[in-house]
Amino acid sequence: MTSPSTIPVLDLGGLLLVSIQGELPDESAIALQEDVTAAVANTGSRGLIIDISTLDVVDSFLARVLAEVAASSRLLAARTVLVGMRPSVAITLVELGLTLPGMDTARTVTEAAASFGVTIEQADRTGRGTP
């Protein structure tokens, strides 16, 4: 058993949102996989959104973890959408030979949520919700 990851898994009412922040050591990536899969099962969510917009590197290890999270979530009847991949990361992953065929992608969390029929209200730049 690995120690729990420090990455919060947010429940947005039927959708789970995971925002991966900064550098992710291998052990945390494996812990994340266990945490997220457990959260999918416990909440009965049909959707999992993984936001990787802060990541400046995704290597084959992390790509495999992401693909396995998506595969195990699919077995638990949840669809995974990967959000916010940087263009430089996309180019590098393709050249590395990793195109993550089992994962849906979206540009933003809002767009990903919309693909599940969930509307997320846009906060304006001051952080307040729109009136």
Binding site: D26, D56, V57, V58, D59, S60, F61, R86, P87, S88, V89, I91, T92, E95, L96
Partner: peptide, 15 residues
């Protein structure tokens, strides 16, 4: 892009 490719390769090889 060139940075990202090298850092990714380094990550693979260091592992």
């Amino acid at each position: 892009v060139q940075q990202t490719k090298l850092v990714t390769a380094a990550s693979e090889l260091a592992r």
